[in-house]
């Protein structure tokens, strides 16, 4: 499918929204509005935006410690996100989740996650639930897509979950954002093979490697996997080659990689690339600039919302220890 200009513009808006959200969050962390760690998604925007474009609202994803981009790409509200980062009562998790755990279940996001492969089995479980419940669903079954990084492919949960998805032929998609580093260790020193999509063969599913900085390529690979899953043909593995422009976490001194390497990847930044494609399609500069300004205003409003929001009452720490009681210390 050749994407329409309108479709590309919407992808561009989302990618810019993620980029600006992250850069502003970094700034606000330095200013003291955001008290905790963040793992910025800067540079990987085409992965989340391309993959989520192939999903419907009913399909679910699992996210990671580097999850802000996934949340925005699935429709997340940047005001509630910024408020959560600022540890406010109005945030997505009322200040209990923070960067590592902020999520919106109404958008079909089964949590962001502080353990790198921790969400993958959950996506497989959701896929099983869909397979069991959606047998007569028009258009095929819902699908579950797990986002994770290259580092997660070396954790046991990854292997256990992919094997089970393969055995049970579940409507699951395993989306590996290979940004070449697991925290501070290069991928080739962590994995016995470097082309991670080759691992798919071990779990009886197709695996492809795509340019993770090309939103159209990411979308097409994911759409194919989604179609397979909806038809009941089982899971797929997608490796998207990408790069994070910031450190593993904000403040990471990044001694493990050279400036030249970072610069070489910045030349392949997915956002200017898509901007160039839009220009080539005849979208006027003013239209793109206006869109960017709108995003800026949206981010400004989000920061304002976070800043003006109250902190939670300390008593609220005890709320929701159990779902049904939803209040009070029980032990």
């Amino acid at each position: 499918m050749e994407p329409t200009t309108e479709w590309l513009l919407e992808r561009y808006r989302l990618m810019v929204l993620i980029r600006q959200f992250e850069l502003r969050a970094i700034e606000e962390r330095q200013r003291g509005l955001i008290p905790g760690f963040i793992h910025p998604y800067v540079g990987q925007e085409a992965c989340a935006v391309g993959a989520c474009a192939a999903l419907t609202r009913e399909d679910v994803i699992t996210s990671t410690h580097r999850g802000h981009g996934h949340l925005i790409a699935k429709g997340g509200d940047v005001r509630l996100m910024m408020a959560e980062l600022a540890a406010r009562k109005t945030g997505y998790c009322a200040g209990k989740g923070g960067s590592l755990h902020m999520t919106d279940f109404d958008l079909g996001i089964l949590g962001a996650n502080g353990i790198v492969a921790g969400g993958i089995p959950m996506a497989v479980g959701a896929a099983l639930a869909f397979k069991m419940q959606d047998q007569r669903r028009p258009g095929g079954t819902r699908v579950a897509l797990a986002f994770f990084g290259d580092g997660a492919t070396n954790q046991g949960a990854f292997h256990e979950a992919l094997n089970l998805a393969g055995v049970w032929k579940l409507p699951a998609i395993f989306f590996c954002e290979n940004n070449l580093y697991g925290e501070g260790t290069p991928q080739h020193k962590q994995g016995a093979i470097t082309q991670l999509s080759a691992r798919a063969a071990a779990y009886g599913m197709p695996g492809v490697t795509v340019d993770g900085n090309d939103v159209v390529a990411v979308y097409q690979a994911t759409a194919e996997a989604v179609a397979r899953a909806r038809r009941g043909e089982g899971p797929s593995f997608i490796e998207a080659l990408t790069y994070r422009f910031r450190g593993h976490y904000e403040g990471d001194p990044q001694v493990y990689r050279s400036r030249e390497e970072v610069a070489a990847w910045q030349a392949r930044d997915p956002i200017p690339r898509l901007r160039a494609l839009l220009s080539a399609r005849g979208v006027r500069e003013e239209q793109i600039a206006a869109l960017e300004r709108e995003v800026e205003q949206q981010i400004e409003a989000a920061v304002q919302f976070a800043r003006e929001s109250p902190l939670a009452d300390p008593q609220e720490a005890l709320i929701g220890v159990y779902g049904d009681t939803h209040g009070g210390a029980v032990f």
Partner: peptide
């Protein structure tokens, strides 16, 4: 259902399925 000998998946898949309506 019989599962592989994979306890982390047994529990994690249970969690995902519980969140998915089972």
């Amino acid at each position: 259902r019989d599962t592989p000998i994979a306890e982390e998946a047994i529990v994690g898949v249970g969690l995902g399925a519980a969140m998915g309506g089972l």
